[in-house]
Amino acid sequence: MPRGVRVLLGCLPGLAAVAALPLCASGVERAVEANARAAAPAAARYTAPRPDIVPRTAWLGDDARPQPAPRYDDEVTAVFVHHTDTPNGYDCADAPAILRGVYLGQTGARDWDDIGYNFVVDRCGTIYEGRAGGIDRPVTGAHTQGFNHRTTGIAALGTYTAGVPVPDALTDAIAALAAWKLGPAGTDPRGRVRLVSSNGLSRYAAGTTASLPAVAGHGEGYETSCPGKALTARLPDIRELAARLQGRPDAA
């Protein structure tokens, strides 16, 4: 009898050893699975479901203008939060029309190739696809000078300067979107990321590696008051909720 078999059978008397073989195998399998889970990358362990998103065709309709093909990055590692600097007292049923106005302003007066934001969220918490290229893909936006690569721009429809109430539905939707977009890269929404500035007009010289919040306000990357003091003050809450939606443990 091979030595390995004698050793295994020597653990238990007679037929008990044979009966124990499936139990031993099962225990080994469970241990392997547990080790695999522990070794799994953060991207696999901390993800969030995709929230409901209104496609751009639903709000843009026939107003879409000819544009070049979308550009893509390898992944999304950070989120920049903006506001659109439009009126706040709108009926949410009118949000698509307001969003069309933002699009036409950016592609008309500013001569951009598309709306700059990857997503826009209204005060009722409805999320709209912004820039073309695919909701699920890492589309390169045009939202934060110097830091459009490997980031997603999420704009709140409205103007959230000091003293303006910020609806919970709005911040909850931003958190859900951030949690989902940052999940594949394994980014903790409460943490910081290293991003390389691509434009000297940003807060950082071109080529400089900056350490920025994973969920940052527009002003963190570019000299601006956007997204307004009221919405900026809610960013810590957005980060915490996004982390919980990813299933991350509470911060120590």
Rank of each mutant, 00 (worst) to 15 (best):
V28C: 13
Y222T: 06
A210E: 10
L12R: 15
Q67D: 00
S225C: 00
W59H: 10
R244A: 15
D114L: 06
L8P: 03
P167C: 04
P165L: 06
S197G: 01
A78E: 03
D136M: 01
G158A: 08
T208H: 14
P68D: 14
A242R: 03
N148I: 02
R137D: 07
D62C: 00
G105K: 07
I154K: 00
A16K: 12
R45T: 09
L8H: 13
P66H: 02
G186S: 03
A210V: 08
Q145F: 00
N148Y: 08
P167D: 04
V28Q: 11
T77A: 06
D114W: 09
T77C: 06
G10R: 13
Y117W: 11
V121P: 03
V164T: 12
G217S: 09
A19Q: 10
D63T: 10
S197R: 01
A34E: 14
A142W: 00
L241P: 03
G217K: 03
I98A: 10
G133T: 10
G191I: 13
P87D: 10
A178I: 12
D114H: 10
V28S: 12
D188Y: 09
T171M: 07
V76M: 00
R239C: 11
V79I: 15
P138S: 05
S26C: 11
A109C: 00
R50W: 04
T57V: 10
I135G: 01
G105S: 09
G219V: 00
G221K: 07
R65C: 03
L231S: 08
G141N: 14
Y90C: 12
P96M: 14
H83S: 03
W180P: 07
I98R: 15
T161P: 01
R71K: 14
G163E: 08
R45D: 02
I135H: 07
T161C: 02
A25F: 14
N199C: 06
T232V: 06
R50T: 11
A175S: 14
Q106I: 09
P51I: 02
R190M: 08
V102C: 13
A155S: 15
A185C: 05
N199D: 15
G191P: 13
A233V: 02
A156Y: 05
G125H: 07
G247N: 05
L231M: 09
G200H: 14
D136P: 01
Q246W: 07
V7K: 15
S225W: 01
P22Q: 11
G217P: 03
G183R: 07
